[in-house]
Amino acid sequence: MPSQRNEFVRFALDQGVLRFGEFKVKSGRLSPYFFNAGLFNSGASVGRLAQFYAHALMASGVEFDMLFGPAYKGIPLSTATSVALANHPSMAGRDVPFAFNRKEAKAHGEGGTLVGAPLKGKVIIIDDVITAGTSVGESVEIIRAAGAEPAGVLIALDRMERAGPDNALSAHSAVQEVSKKYGMPVISIASLSDIMFYLENNSELAAHQQSVAAYRQKYGV
Rank of each mutant, 00 (worst) to 15 (best):
residue 61 G to D: 07
residue 62 V to E: 03
residue 63 E to T: 09
residue 65 D to N: 11
residue 67 L to A: 07
residue 68 F to R: 04
residue 73 K to I: 07
residue 75 I to P: 03
residue 78 S to R: 05
residue 80 A to L: 02
residue 81 T to Y: 04
residue 82 S to T: 00
residue 83 V to I: 08
residue 84 A to K: 00
residue 84 A to V: 00
residue 85 L to W: 02
residue 86 A to S: 08
residue 86 A to R: 04
residue 88 H to T: 01
residue 91 M to A: 10
residue 91 M to Y: 05
residue 91 M to P: 06
residue 94 R to F: 15
residue 94 R to I: 12
residue 95 D to P: 02
residue 95 D to C: 12
residue 96 V to I: 10
residue 96 V to P: 06
residue 96 V to G: 05
residue 98 F to C: 06
residue 99 A to V: 05
residue 101 N to S: 04
residue 102 R to V: 07
residue 102 R to S: 09
residue 104 E to P: 11
residue 104 E to V: 15
residue 105 A to S: 13
residue 105 A to I: 08
residue 107 A to V: 13
residue 109 G to C: 10
residue 110 E to P: 12
residue 111 G to W: 14
residue 112 G to Q: 12
residue 115 V to F: 09
residue 115 V to T: 14
residue 116 G to A: 10
residue 116 G to P: 06
residue 117 A to V: 07
residue 119 L to M: 07
residue 120 K to Q: 14
residue 121 G to P: 08
residue 123 V to A: 08
residue 126 I to P: 15
residue 127 D to I: 09
residue 127 D to Q: 12
residue 128 D to F: 07
residue 130 I to V: 15
residue 134 T to E: 03
residue 135 S to R: 07
residue 135 S to P: 09
residue 135 S to V: 08
residue 138 E to K: 15
residue 139 S to G: 09
residue 141 E to H: 13
residue 142 I to N: 01
residue 142 I to C: 02
residue 144 R to K: 14
residue 145 A to I: 03
residue 146 A to S: 08
residue 147 G to R: 00
residue 148 A to Q: 05
residue 149 E to K: 03
residue 150 P to W: 01
residue 150 P to M: 00
residue 150 P to N: 01
residue 152 G to N: 04
residue 154 L to Q: 12
residue 156 A to G: 04
residue 157 L to T: 02
residue 163 A to D: 12
residue 165 P to W: 02
residue 165 P to Y: 02
residue 166 D to H: 11
residue 168 A to V: 01
residue 169 L to G: 02
residue 169 L to C: 05
residue 170 S to M: 14
residue 171 A to S: 15
residue 171 A to G: 14
residue 173 S to P: 13
residue 174 A to R: 07
residue 176 Q to Y: 13
residue 177 E to N: 15
residue 178 V to H: 07
residue 178 V to L: 05
residue 179 S to N: 04
residue 179 S to Y: 06
residue 180 K to T: 13
residue 180 K to P: 03
residue 181 K to E: 06
residue 184 M to C: 01
residue 187 I to P: 00
residue 188 S to E: 10
residue 188 S to W: 02
residue 189 I to D: 04
residue 190 A to C: 13
residue 196 M to R: 12
residue 197 F to G: 09
